[in-house]
Write a protein that binds this DNA or RNA. Sequence first.
DNA 1: TTTTTTTGCTAACATATGTTAGTATATTAT
DNA 2: ATAATATACTAACATATGTTAGCAAAAAAA
Lengths: 205, 205
Amino acid sequence: MLVYYLRCMARIKIDKNSSRKEVIVTKAAALFREKGFKAASMRDLAESVGVEAASLYNHIKSKTELLHELCFGVANRFMHKMDEVEAQKISAIEKVETMIRFHIDEMINHYEEVYVSDREWKHLSDPYLSNFQNQRRMYRKRFAALIEAGIRDKEIKKIDAPTAVLILLHAIGGIESWHRSTKKISAEALTDNMITILVGGLANK
Amino acid sequence: MLVYYLRCMARIKIDKNSSRKEVIVTKAAALFREKGFKAASMRDLAESVGVEAASLYNHIKSKTELLHELCFGVANRFMHKMDEVEAQKISAIEKVETMIRFHIDEMINHYEEVYVSDREWKHLSDPYLSNFQNQRRMYRKRFAALIEAGIRDKEIKKIDAPTAVLILLHAIGGIESWHRSTKKISAEALTDNMITILVGGLANK
DNA sequence: TTTTTTTGCTAACATATGTTAGTATATTAT
DNA sequence: ATAATATACTAACATATGTTAGCAAAAAAA
């Protein structure tokens, strides 16, 4: 039997365990990271997925929905880790270090999503926007509480905890550049360096 | 004499020492910071300036030119400070601390411009884009050299200098949130806290 | 095979946006 | 006062963009 394929439709390739929607969300993360949410067009995204722009709407509701998925996916992971760490029976400074390591790990292994969630959440629209901002505020409060506990226990220097949280979170967000760097040190070396610098600065001598 | 103003044209208000173009650039900084370069429209900017969109083009060449002005204005200030500090006869760690203090000061007093230069430079177009990226790379190299000198002199812990630079710069960039915070600590307290955390973590004991 | 569902395509719409042309009105210089 | 310059306005254009409608084709279910 001889079959001539005169024309053939593109198709979003999927492997088991990931729906077509998930493929789109992942590609969107990379694109939003590269160009920014506003500058990345649905036509760009479609090209990166290998399909026409209109076809995307068989799988997603809107461009903004993509941002929702990314932002809240990341936010939830951090929230759950915080739940877990708070419940652990370890010292305050160990909790802080655990969270820092988690942040670094997330930044290394889920770089695009974390980066987008961090820098592009502004473009969410209400009620998602307020929701996200609240979650973010909550998270920082809980992180600051860990540090304050450490200060009470004299494991951590007497510093302004909210300021420390900002420094920590943004310092880690900076791995962005490491990720694109050509002669990059290993992930372990990077993590150790960061812990040395950040916790070394926090620890009381 | 009785004068009826049936209609009157808006006019960009200027005070001595600042041209109309400078007023526009300043307003653009605030707007780009708030909404991002791509999301901020020329009509938004016009409204914020108090004039119609087309009128802006009597003073500026294009939207991108506004970004040029902001990005290179900031970049030049940092470069000049680096020149100055490198030439000073003080210890390496003192140079690092001086630069950190300068960064914090810039972030506090020229918040909008610095923030925009930091986050929106992606939207520059060549040849400005490459130019800016080169300047940025250069700056980081010089900053890392300060830290490496400190390591050689045993004033600073043995850490990966480029990583340390990333951490420092991004940690300071995080004051963004402090700036919008309601119950903010004073600028001096903030600076001291940051130095304590950052340099305390760098200093060898 | 036949039917149903999923997925993709083309075409188009509505809107937003950067920018220019041409003109009117202030301001400054003569 | 008159001329010249600077500045603003209205109108419009060209393009980019998110999204929908309607139909074709592929895959899955019957």
